[in-house]
């Protein structure tokens, strides 16, 4: 295998990680709250716009913390005022709600910042390349990858190694039983929304220096993120992780073989195949409530 092709494979593996921050949040909010959050992309866009506004004042480093926290707070506000009304309702209703929210957010960004895309560059201390023998890679992307992996690892620890995570996992399977045990799920749902939406905000900060920042940018990322969730299986942590890597890899290899025009179509073909063979996704668990 040539070095170039090997580079494509490695790059493909990394590429999927960008979707992961969005896809995991989508999966979490649906698994526990039963809400398909079509506004998730909008929170990503808000994270990116906040970066453009805040970075000149507080620096990119501080934005990495401040912007996701601000987006998470906005998420909590929306969770407390809107999502709470839909947890026990038909998912179709919350689908309509979040679809509306996404449009409101996009138009609000257009009204405040204009339709023209905004510019934002990689901060000078993060520019340059990492050279490992034949493998040359962008230093910024290495940082992006590191932060994404750390966030995902922390999330896994939170869900699997803490009391908080135990309640969340139990709540996914049987919210009524959790309630019967005298544990109210509401605060957990709030924290989960904060984390999931905060991660979307973080993705917005991380991708602002390398993607175009425009009001509809949420759409661009939401569709592939949904594909990742569907392939991986709703509610499955590792399913989403494996699917993200698989999607990135497939895309990278397709381009590596010179078939760039198929780079996005191939992801949808993969989703079709998975849905035909395993309708619950690769690692999708059987969630009683949704059957």
């Amino acid at each position: 295998m040539s070095t170039v092709f090997l580079q494509q494979v490695v790059n493909g593996l990394l590429d999927g990680v960008y979707y992961l921050l969005i896809a995991l949040g989508l999966s979490l909010i649906f698994a526990l709250g039963g809400i398909v959050n079509l506004a998730h992309g909008a929170f990503y866009a808000i994270g990116a716009y906040l970066t453009v506004v805040l970075a000149p004042w507080i620096g990119f480093g501080a934005t990495l913390v401040v912007s996701p926290v601000a987006v998470a707070l906005l998420g909590v506000l929306i969770e407390r005022t809107l999502f709470v009304r839909f947890y026990r309702e038909d998912p179709i209703l919350s689908l309509l709600l979040t679809f509306g929210l996404a449009m409101v957010a996009e138009q609000a960004l257009r009204m405040i910042f204009g339709a023209a895309p905004l510019s934002f560059s990689i901060p000078s201390w993060l520019r340059g390349q990492i050279v490992l023998g034949d493998f040359i890679y962008s230093r910024y992307r290495a940082l992006l990858l590191l932060l994404a992996v750390v966030s995902v690892a922390l999330l896994w620890l939170l869900l699997n190694r803490t009391a908080f995570g135990r309640v969340v996992r139990a709540g996914v399977q049987d919210p009524d039983m959790v309630g019967a045990l005298g544990i109210p799920l509401r605060p957990y749902l709030m924290w989960l929304a904060a984390i999931a939406i905060g991660l979307a905000g973080l993705a917005g900060v991380l991708l602002a220096p390398i993607y175009s920042i425009h009001p509809a940018m949420g759409h661009d990322i939401l569709t592939p993120a949904f594909v990742v969730v569907v392939i991986g299986g709703l509610g499955s942590f590792w399913g989403v992780v494996v699917a993200a890597i698989l999607v990135g890899l497939t895309k990278g290899v397709t381009i590596g073989f010179g078939y760039s025009q198929w780079a996005t179509a191939v992801i949808y073909l993969m989703m079709l195949l998975v849905l035909l063979l395993r309708p619950r996704g690769l690692f999708g668990e059987r969630i009683k409530r949704f059957e």
Partner: peptide, 22 residues
């Protein structure tokens, strides 16, 4: 040297940039 078609919903050019570098 090469002539590549790019789907309009492709946002990440990293794979193509690696190809260009090579």
């Amino acid at each position: 040297a090469a002539d590549r078609l790019v789907p309009t919903d492709l946002a990440d050019f990293s794979a193509l940039l690696l190809e260009i570098r090579a």
